[in-house]
Design a protein around this nucleic acid. Structure first.
Length: 454
RNA sequence: GCGCCUGUGGUUUAGUGGAUAGAACGUCGGCCUCCGGAGCCGAAAGUCGCAGGUUCGAAUCCUGCCAGGCGCACCA
């Protein structure tokens, strides 16, 4: 069966921040888990590279560009205030050389009213150019950050490619045929209320002829559904919660059964610095970049932290605390168990102990409570993975790993693996090897590294 | 105002209607002749937001209330 997971899909208007890290860790790990239980999984990133936000981005870049040229500008009120746009403006200036300033000058100086039309045209052209450049640059940064976080996508689909394919008018005429649309106040509306009581009808095509985001999103989902997936999973932030019913209604309108589209909402990550709460806003430029978190607490610790909690819980991320906790982070507890086992196996090798074939080893020698608990725990692995896949909850696996590591550390302090008793040594080496494989597999599913040494 | 989500020791949290609610951090006290002390053992710390209800049995299901988060556009 084929499943597609759409996650992160951050608008290319700013770098990834801490909240996106949660979605990235969650989606990536979920993809690993589903693939482990036999699904053919595709990871997709949808790029919203059109619309009002890109216009705002463009004018923000333009303002930064003018600033660089020493002009006083009033920064657009609803613009993106983050400093990353200054870097992009610098880059833009370098690549375009003097050309940009000439164009900007031409537009800036409004001399005659007759010129106004031409200026407006030039302005929209420049903004378009700036928008494409900035979007591109930001997307590049996003890809670098994702790579550093160990997340790779199989497929990137952009909103503008849907426009090029004329996918939106196509899907609208389909809905029109089905009689799911109507005109009112010069706009084209979708009968959401037909599918869900309590939902209001929504505009798909505005009075000025532009399509709304909802319209292109319907086209996008139709495109996905046509690609033949048995399941489509969208992972969205809580700020899109109100959008869920609408999207599900649209899927039904397109003639697909309820349940093909699953939408997982992960709650926001609220940032704390001591007692002060900071809401992560890209627009205001107030956010902690994911990159910064990775540099400070590390990829493994960050992923484990995000994956230790249910995605429905509101998460307080205290950067100071996270940094402080780094050496005590449970991820090291688990990794340490693995490294210890590697060290035991290395020790066995140095003592020239040959590890026998499984069928030659007397496992019934493992009779201590610690050994029995460990064997029981290891045998739970398939169930744990299956349950994590079924419930779409990767965090079960972090809990499992901690339990397994605890049992191992207890066993380790109470019993020696390598001893005079050769038969017992063989049995324990086998046990310990099984634990190693188990920890390695699960850490792999979580996208966390599996160190031989620490 | 309406909708969705969340409330579990000081802090961060796990918990698929079932036994004495598990951990981790922090606090206090122990454990290195011997495979890695990033470890182990122990202690203090909980009216599972509050109040009802369903049930033989509720942190878990239902209702109401309180607190916090996120939404409620011809924005994306």
């Amino acid at each position: 069966k084929k499943v597609q997971i759409d996650f992160v899909s951050v608008n290319p208007t700013g770098p990834l921040h801490i909240g996106h890290g949660r979605a990235a860790a969650f989606g990536d790990s979920l993809a690993n888990i589903l693939s482990k239980v036999g699904y053919e999984v595709e990871r997709e990133y949808y790029v919203n590279d059109r619309g009002g936000q890109i216009k705002r981005l463009s004018s923000s870049v333009w303002a930064r560009l003018k600033e660089l040229e020493g002009k006083k500008v009033s920064f657009p009120e609803d613009g993106y205030k983050g400093e990353y746009l200054i870097e992009i403006a610098k880059k833009l200036k370098k690549e375009l050389g003097n050309k940009s300033s000439e164009i900007a000058k031409g537009v800036d100086s409004k001399k005659k009213i007759a010129q106004k039309k031409r200026e407006e045209k030039a302005e929209s052209q420049i903004l378009g150019l700036l928008g494409r450049f900035a979007t591109n640059e930001i997307l590049k940064e996003i890809k670098v950050d994702l790579e550093a976080f160990g997340v790779r996508f199989d497929s990137w689909v952009s909103e503008s490619s849907l426009h090029q394919k004329k996918a939106i008018p196509e899907v609208l005429s389909y809905l029109q045929e089905k009689n799911y649309l109507y005109e009112k106040d010069g706009a084209l509306w979708f009968k959401t209320s037909l599918f869900l009581s309590g939902e209001e009808d929504r505009v798909l095509k505005r009075g000025n002829g532009d399509y709304t985001y909802f319209a292109s999103d319907i086209a996008y989902h139709q495109d996905k559904l046509r690609r033949g997936f048995d399941r489509i999973i969208d992972i969205w932030g809580a700020d899109h919660i109100g959008y869920v019913p609408r999207m599900k209604a649209a899927t039904q309108a397109l003639g697909y059964p309820e349940g093909v589209l699953e939408i997982i909402i992960h709650q926001m990550v609220t940032l704390k610095r001591g007692k002060e709460r900071i809401s992560a806003s890209t627009r205001e430029g107030k956010f902690i970049p994911l990159k910064e978190v990775l540099d400070e607490v590390g990829r493994d610790a960050a992923r484990f932290f995000f994956l230790s909690r249910t995605c429905g819980s509101h998460l307080d991320f205290d950067l100071e605390l996270a940094k402080k906790q780094t050496p005590e982070n449970p991820v090291f507890y688990v990794q340490y168990a693995h490294a210890r086992i590697c060290s035991i196996l290395e020790n066995a090798r140095e003592n020239r102990i040959k590890i026998k074939n499984p069928d030659e080893v007397k496992l019934d020698l493992l009779t201590t409570p610690e050994e029995r608990e460990l064997m029981k725990e290891i045998s739970l692995l398939p169930d744990e993975v299956y349950e994590a896949a079924k419930s779409l909850e990767p965090h079960r696996l972090t809990t499992y790993l901690q339990e397994l590591a605890t049992l191992f550390h207890q066993f380790y302090t109470r019993h020696r693996v390598i001893s005079e008793d050769r038969e017992l040594t063989q049995a324990r080496l086998m046990l310990v090897k099984a634990i190693k494989v188990t920890i390695g597999d699960v850490l792999g599913l979580l996208g966390i590294s599996v160190p031989q040494k620490m």
